[in-house]
């Protein structure tokens, strides 16, 4: 379970996240949608304990991320939007290192690492330095790193970037299975089709605030866009004025 209470983050005079309240129940996949610069990544980074909020709090499985970071982070796996990892470690070494950060070691972890590398077709790259990995391979590696310690909560920022169709399908199946076994995932994405098929509920965030919340049907009603797809709903909720601008640019 993830709960955000009045979560606020400011960068100088700019408010990136503005008093967000949100609850993601246990055993659910929750989508976080919004245009670029809406505050999605900042929100996820606060949940992951990378950034400290200016106001409000984040609870992960009931543990406050700021006051009790050790307990909260042990239960959490974070997948960032850009797969920056140590270039001079091999894939297997990176996973072993991450497991170590979570206090896990030994034969069980070695098996887990093998299992994850096999799952993502990275087995034969296990002893290659990460610097030789493609973008998609790095993405698969950080997904593995987020899963290596068997978290109960996943916070995922743009999971589909760089993934081939097979891996994208695998990720969807994996997340569904994760939720079915009681896991909770908060997924920020621009791939609306991905959110539509996977997330039971979602929130649309714009200029740091939640502007709509609920199932696709709920969002449709809130956007007053009956029988429209998620893309149309999204554009209505976040301002579709850019379309006209785009046409003018293309026409020259």
């Amino acid at each position: 379970m993830i709960r955000l209470e009045g979560l606020t983050k400011r960068y100088g005079a700019f408010t990136a996240v503005d008093a967000i309240d949100l609850e993601v129940p246990k055993g659910s996949l929750f989508g976080l949608l919004g245009p670029n610069g809406a505050g999605k990544t900042t929100t996820l980074r606060m949940i992951a304990g990378i950034l400290q909020p200016d106001e409000g709090r984040v609870l992960v499985e009931g543990f406050d991320v700021v006051r009790d970071p050790y307990q909260a982070k042990r239960r959490l796996g974070y997948i960032p939007d850009r797969p920056f990892v140590y270039e001079k470690l091999t894939g297997a070494e990176l996973l072993r290192f991450v497991a170590g950060l979570y206090g896990q070691d030994g034969a069980a972890i070695e098996e887990r690492i093998e299992e994850l590398l096999r799952l993502w077709d990275l087995e034969r790259w296990a002893d290659e330095l990460v610097e030789s990995y493609s973008h998609g391979m790095r993405q698969k590696l950080i997904i593995s790193a987020a899963l290596v310690h068997r978290p109960t909560v996943l916070v995922i920022d743009e999971p589909m970037v760089g993934l081939d169709p097979k891996s994208a399908r695998l990720l969807k199946d994996l997340l569904r299975a994760f939720a079915q076994t009681g896991g909770t995932a908060l997924i920020s994405t621009h791939t609306l089709a991905f959110a539509e098929v996977l997330c039971e509920r979602m929130a649309v965030i714009d200029t740091g605030r939640i502007v709509a919340l609920g199932s696709v049907e709920d969002l449709r009603a809130q956007a007053k866009a009956e029988s429209s797809g998620l893309e149309e709903i999204f554009l209505r909720l976040t301002g579709g004025a850019a379309e006209g601008e785009l046409l003018r640019v293309l026409e020259g």
Binding site: P69, Y70, Q71, L76, Y78, R82, F84, V85, Y102
Partner: peptide
């Protein structure tokens, strides 16, 4: 640098 997220998000 860019890999600090790994440390910061871990316990």
């Amino acid at each position: 640098g860019s890999t600090l997220w790994l440390i910061d998000s871990s316990p």
